[in-house]
Protein backbone atom coordinates (compact mmCIF):
# COMPACT_ATOMS: atom_id res chain seq x y z
CA UNK A 1 0.00 0.00 0.00
CA UNK A 2 1.23 3.44 -0.88
CA UNK A 3 -0.15 6.77 0.33
CA UNK A 4 -1.69 9.28 -2.08
CA UNK A 5 0.77 11.82 -3.42
CA UNK A 6 1.70 14.74 -1.21
CA UNK A 7 4.16 17.63 -1.07
CA UNK A 8 6.89 17.19 1.48
CA UNK A 9 8.57 19.80 3.66
CA UNK A 10 11.34 19.36 6.16
CA UNK A 11 11.44 22.60 8.17
CA UNK A 12 14.46 23.42 10.33
CA UNK A 13 12.58 25.19 13.12
CA UNK A 14 9.22 25.04 14.82
CA UNK A 15 8.36 28.54 13.55
CA UNK A 16 9.09 27.48 9.99
CA UNK A 17 6.86 24.44 10.53
CA UNK A 18 4.00 26.65 11.74
CA UNK A 19 4.41 28.94 8.73
CA UNK A 20 4.33 25.96 6.34
CA UNK A 21 1.18 24.61 7.96
CA UNK A 22 -0.36 28.06 7.67
CA UNK A 23 0.57 28.38 3.98
CA UNK A 24 -0.52 24.90 2.96
CA UNK A 25 -4.19 24.16 3.23
CA UNK A 26 -4.89 20.54 4.11
CA UNK A 27 -1.31 19.95 5.30
CA UNK A 28 -0.40 17.80 8.27
CA UNK A 29 2.43 17.52 10.76
CA UNK A 30 4.51 14.34 10.45
CA UNK A 31 6.16 13.34 13.74
CA UNK A 32 6.97 9.64 14.22
CA UNK A 33 4.50 8.71 11.47
CA UNK A 34 3.48 5.55 13.29
CA UNK A 35 -0.19 6.53 13.19
CA UNK A 36 -0.30 9.04 10.33
CA UNK A 37 1.55 6.93 7.74
CA UNK A 38 -0.63 3.95 8.67
CA UNK A 39 -3.75 6.03 8.00
CA UNK A 40 -2.30 7.39 4.76
CA UNK A 41 -1.40 3.93 3.48
CA UNK A 42 -4.96 2.80 4.14
CA UNK A 43 -6.08 6.03 2.39
CA UNK A 44 -8.07 6.98 5.47
CA UNK A 45 -6.04 10.19 5.41
CA UNK A 46 -4.77 11.98 2.31
CA UNK A 47 -3.17 15.29 3.28
CA UNK A 48 -1.94 17.42 0.37
CA UNK A 49 1.33 18.16 2.18
CA UNK A 50 3.37 16.79 5.06
CA UNK A 51 5.41 19.04 7.31
CA UNK A 52 8.03 16.68 8.72
CA UNK A 53 9.10 17.88 12.16
CA UNK A 54 10.85 14.62 13.07
CA UNK A 55 14.32 16.12 12.57
CA UNK A 56 13.74 18.97 15.07
CA UNK A 57 15.89 17.42 17.78
CA UNK A 58 15.38 20.41 20.08
CA UNK A 59 11.80 19.17 20.58
CA UNK A 60 12.96 15.94 22.23
CA UNK A 61 13.77 16.32 25.93
CA UNK A 62 12.68 15.62 29.50
CA UNK A 63 13.39 18.71 31.59
CA UNK A 64 12.81 19.42 35.30
CA UNK A 65 11.38 22.90 35.71
CA UNK A 66 10.48 24.53 39.03
CA UNK A 67 6.80 23.58 39.08
CA UNK A 68 6.54 20.88 36.46
CA UNK A 69 8.34 18.25 34.45
CA UNK A 70 8.47 19.33 30.81
CA UNK A 71 8.49 16.73 28.04
CA UNK A 72 9.22 17.81 24.45
CA UNK A 73 6.50 16.71 22.01
CA UNK A 74 8.99 14.74 19.90
CA UNK A 75 10.21 12.60 22.79
CA UNK A 76 9.82 8.97 21.70
CA UNK A 77 7.96 6.36 23.76
CA UNK A 78 11.21 4.44 24.35
CA UNK A 79 12.79 7.45 26.09
CA UNK A 80 9.67 7.99 28.22
CA UNK A 81 9.78 4.32 29.22
CA UNK A 82 13.41 4.47 30.38
CA UNK A 83 13.70 7.98 31.81
CA UNK A 84 14.49 7.71 35.53
CA UNK A 85 12.94 11.04 36.57
CA UNK A 86 9.66 10.05 34.94
CA UNK A 87 9.85 6.66 36.60
CA UNK A 88 10.36 8.22 40.01
CA UNK A 89 7.83 11.04 39.78
CA UNK A 90 5.23 9.85 37.28
CA UNK A 91 5.46 6.07 37.27
CA UNK A 92 2.16 5.75 35.41
CA UNK A 93 3.78 7.24 32.31
CA UNK A 94 6.50 4.59 32.50
CA UNK A 95 3.76 1.95 32.75
CA UNK A 96 1.87 3.41 29.78
CA UNK A 97 4.87 3.99 27.47
CA UNK A 98 6.23 0.51 28.09
CA UNK A 99 2.92 -1.00 26.94
CA UNK A 100 2.68 0.78 23.60
CA UNK A 101 2.81 -1.49 20.56
CA UNK A 102 6.28 -3.00 20.38
CA UNK A 103 9.95 -1.98 20.51
CA UNK A 104 10.08 -0.76 16.91
CA UNK A 105 6.99 1.44 17.40
CA UNK A 106 8.39 2.78 20.67
CA UNK A 107 11.66 3.63 18.89
CA UNK A 108 9.87 6.03 16.54
CA UNK A 109 6.45 7.05 17.92
CA UNK A 110 6.31 10.27 19.97
CA UNK A 111 4.34 11.45 22.99
CA UNK A 112 3.19 14.50 21.02
CA UNK A 113 2.04 12.33 18.12
CA UNK A 114 0.14 10.02 20.40
CA UNK A 115 -1.53 12.99 22.11
CA UNK A 116 -2.46 14.74 18.84
CA UNK A 117 -3.66 11.53 17.20
CA UNK A 118 -6.01 11.16 20.21
CA UNK A 119 -7.03 7.58 19.65
CA UNK A 120 -9.36 6.88 22.58
CA UNK A 121 -7.67 3.48 23.11
CA UNK A 122 -4.14 4.93 23.19
CA UNK A 123 -2.15 4.60 26.39
CA UNK A 124 -0.38 7.93 26.94
CA UNK A 125 -3.48 10.16 26.58
CA UNK A 126 -5.21 8.24 29.38
CA UNK A 127 -2.14 8.47 31.63
CA UNK A 128 -1.74 12.18 30.82
CA UNK A 129 -5.38 12.79 31.73
CA UNK A 130 -4.86 11.19 35.15
CA UNK A 131 -1.82 13.47 35.67
CA UNK A 132 -3.88 16.43 34.46
CA UNK A 133 -1.01 17.36 32.18
CA UNK A 134 -0.85 20.75 30.47
CA UNK A 135 -0.25 20.97 26.74
CA UNK A 136 1.78 23.82 25.23
CA UNK A 137 0.41 24.67 21.79
CA UNK A 138 2.30 27.05 19.51
CA UNK A 139 1.01 29.03 16.57
CA UNK A 140 1.97 32.14 14.60
CA UNK A 141 0.27 34.19 17.32
CA UNK A 142 2.34 32.80 20.19
CA UNK A 143 1.62 29.98 22.58
CA UNK A 144 -1.29 28.85 24.73
CA UNK A 145 -1.44 26.25 27.46
CA UNK A 146 -4.36 23.86 27.62
CA UNK A 147 -5.13 21.36 30.42
CA UNK A 148 -5.83 17.73 29.56
CA UNK A 149 -9.54 18.21 30.31
CA UNK A 150 -9.74 20.66 27.39
CA UNK A 151 -7.06 19.18 25.16
CA UNK A 152 -8.91 15.98 24.20
CA UNK A 153 -11.99 17.27 22.39
CA UNK A 154 -13.52 14.27 20.63
CA UNK A 155 -12.67 11.07 18.79
CA UNK A 156 -9.28 11.78 17.10
CA UNK A 157 -9.78 15.48 17.83
CA UNK A 158 -7.74 17.77 20.05
CA UNK A 159 -7.46 21.47 20.82
CA UNK A 160 -4.54 21.72 18.36
CA UNK A 161 -5.63 23.75 15.32
CA UNK A 162 -4.53 23.18 11.73
CA UNK A 163 -1.66 25.67 11.79
CA UNK A 164 -0.57 24.91 15.33
CA UNK A 165 2.09 22.60 16.74
CA UNK A 166 2.11 20.89 20.11
CA UNK A 167 5.56 21.72 21.48
CA UNK A 168 5.63 20.50 25.08
CA UNK A 169 3.68 18.53 27.65
CA UNK A 170 3.95 19.71 31.25
CA UNK A 171 3.37 17.46 34.23
CA UNK A 172 2.73 19.50 37.41
CA UNK A 173 4.71 17.92 40.27
CA UNK A 174 2.67 15.87 42.69
CA UNK A 175 2.57 16.71 46.41
CA UNK A 176 4.47 14.50 48.89
CA UNK A 177 2.87 11.11 49.64
CA UNK A 178 1.63 10.67 46.08
CA UNK A 179 1.70 7.59 43.88
CA UNK A 180 0.53 6.66 40.39
CA UNK A 181 -0.08 3.71 38.11
CA UNK A 182 -1.45 2.75 34.71
CA UNK A 183 -2.71 -0.68 33.72
CA UNK A 184 -3.49 -1.64 30.15
CA UNK A 185 -5.93 -4.50 29.74
CA UNK A 186 -5.46 -6.27 26.42
CA UNK A 187 -5.66 -9.83 25.20
CA UNK A 188 -2.30 -9.95 23.43
CA UNK A 189 0.89 -7.95 23.93
CA UNK A 190 1.01 -5.10 21.47
CA UNK A 191 -2.74 -4.84 20.99
CA UNK A 192 -4.56 -1.63 21.76
CA UNK A 193 -6.24 -1.46 25.19
CA UNK A 194 -9.65 -3.03 25.77
CA UNK A 195 -9.68 -0.81 28.84
CA UNK A 196 -6.83 1.37 30.11
CA UNK A 197 -6.87 2.83 33.62
CA UNK A 198 -4.61 5.56 34.99
CA UNK A 199 -4.61 6.65 38.64
CA UNK A 200 -2.79 9.45 40.45
CA UNK A 201 -3.45 9.77 44.17
CA UNK A 202 -2.21 11.63 47.22
CA UNK A 203 -2.59 10.30 50.76
CA UNK A 204 -3.06 12.29 53.95
CA UNK A 205 -2.61 11.01 57.51
CA UNK A 206 -2.98 7.28 57.79
CA UNK A 207 -4.51 5.83 54.68
CA UNK A 208 -6.88 8.71 54.03
CA UNK A 209 -7.22 9.71 50.39
CA UNK A 210 -6.48 13.41 50.09
CA UNK A 211 -6.79 13.64 46.35
CA UNK A 212 -7.30 11.23 43.47
CA UNK A 213 -7.71 11.32 39.70
CA UNK A 214 -8.85 8.27 37.80
CA UNK A 215 -8.76 8.28 33.98
CA UNK A 216 -10.21 5.61 31.72
CA UNK A 217 -9.17 4.85 28.14
CA UNK A 218 -10.97 3.03 25.32
CA UNK A 219 -14.40 3.52 26.91
CA UNK A 220 -15.43 6.88 25.46
CA UNK A 221 -14.58 9.27 22.60
CA UNK A 222 -11.86 10.86 24.77
CA UNK A 223 -10.06 9.77 27.93
CA UNK A 224 -12.77 9.78 30.60
CA UNK A 225 -12.31 10.89 34.20
CA UNK A 226 -14.22 8.64 36.64
CA UNK A 227 -15.51 11.63 38.62
CA UNK A 228 -18.03 9.77 40.79
CA UNK A 229 -15.43 7.28 41.96
CA UNK A 230 -12.93 10.09 42.57
CA UNK A 231 -15.43 12.05 44.68
CA UNK A 232 -16.43 8.92 46.58
CA UNK A 233 -12.85 8.20 47.65
CA UNK A 234 -11.75 11.72 48.60
CA UNK A 235 -11.52 12.00 52.39
CA UNK A 236 -12.12 8.27 52.88
CA UNK A 237 -9.72 5.61 54.06
CA UNK A 238 -8.25 3.68 51.16
CA UNK A 239 -9.21 0.20 52.35
CA UNK A 240 -10.45 -2.75 50.32
CA UNK A 241 -14.12 -1.99 50.90
CA UNK A 242 -13.98 1.69 49.94
CA UNK A 243 -11.87 0.94 46.89
CA UNK A 244 -14.28 -1.79 45.78
CA UNK A 245 -17.27 0.51 46.33
CA UNK A 246 -15.64 3.27 44.31
CA UNK A 247 -14.75 0.84 41.51
CA UNK A 248 -18.44 -0.17 41.28
CA UNK A 249 -19.33 3.38 40.20
CA UNK A 250 -16.19 4.04 38.13
CA UNK A 251 -18.01 3.26 34.88
CA UNK A 252 -20.59 6.02 35.29
CA UNK A 253 -20.61 8.03 32.07
CA UNK A 254 -18.61 5.44 30.16
CA UNK A 255 -19.94 4.46 26.75
CA UNK A 256 -17.54 1.85 25.44
CA UNK A 257 -17.79 0.39 21.95
CA UNK A 258 -18.50 -3.27 21.23
CA UNK A 259 -15.96 -4.77 18.87
CA UNK A 260 -13.93 -7.91 18.28
CA UNK A 261 -11.76 -7.15 21.31
CA UNK A 262 -14.64 -6.99 23.77
CA UNK A 263 -18.34 -6.25 24.08
CA UNK A 264 -19.68 -3.13 25.70
CA UNK A 265 -20.89 -5.13 28.71
CA UNK A 266 -17.50 -6.76 29.14
CA UNK A 267 -15.70 -3.43 29.05
CA UNK A 268 -18.15 -1.93 31.59
CA UNK A 269 -17.21 -4.75 33.97
CA UNK A 270 -13.50 -4.47 33.24
CA UNK A 271 -13.54 -0.77 34.15
CA UNK A 272 -14.45 -1.85 37.69
CA UNK A 273 -11.84 -4.57 37.91
CA UNK A 274 -9.01 -2.45 36.55
CA UNK A 275 -9.95 0.66 38.51
CA UNK A 276 -9.65 -1.42 41.65
CA UNK A 277 -6.31 -2.87 40.65
CA UNK A 278 -4.87 0.43 39.47
CA UNK A 279 -5.84 2.31 42.66
CA UNK A 280 -4.02 -0.38 44.63
CA UNK A 281 -1.02 -0.20 42.31
CA UNK A 282 -0.83 3.59 42.78
CA UNK A 283 -1.14 3.15 46.58
CA UNK A 284 1.73 0.69 46.61
CA UNK A 285 3.92 3.37 45.07
CA UNK A 286 3.12 6.23 47.48
CA UNK A 287 6.40 7.71 48.66
Amino acid sequence: MTPKKFDYYSPTSINEAIQLLHDNEDSKVLAGGQSLLALMKLRLAAPSALVDISKLQEMSYVREDKDYLGIGALTIHDIIEHNQTIKKKFTLLTDAASKIGDQQIRNVGTIGGSSCHADPAADLPTALSAVNAHFVIRSGKGQRIVPATEFFVDLFQTAVGHDEVLSEIRLPYLPPRSGSGYIKHSRREGDFAIVGTGVVLTMGDGNVCKDIRIALGAVSATPLRAKSAEEYLKGKTLDDKNIADAAEIANEGADPPSDMHGSKEYRMEMIKVFTRRTVKLAMSRVM
Binding site: G33, Q34, L37, Q104
Partner: peptide
Protein backbone atom coordinates in the same frame (compact mmCIF):
# COMPACT_ATOMS: atom_id res chain seq x y z
CA UNK B 1 21.10 2.63 15.75
CA UNK B 2 17.43 1.91 16.45
CA UNK B 3 15.26 -0.95 15.27
CA UNK B 4 12.55 0.48 13.05
CA UNK B 5 9.85 -0.95 10.77
CA UNK B 6 10.93 0.26 7.35
CA UNK B 7 7.37 0.16 5.99
CA UNK B 8 6.50 2.86 8.54
CA UNK B 9 9.14 5.36 7.38
CA UNK B 10 9.34 7.37 4.15
CA UNK B 11 12.40 6.98 1.94
CA UNK B 12 12.86 10.74 1.98
CA UNK B 13 13.14 10.62 5.79
Amino acid sequence: GKSVKSCMVLAIQ
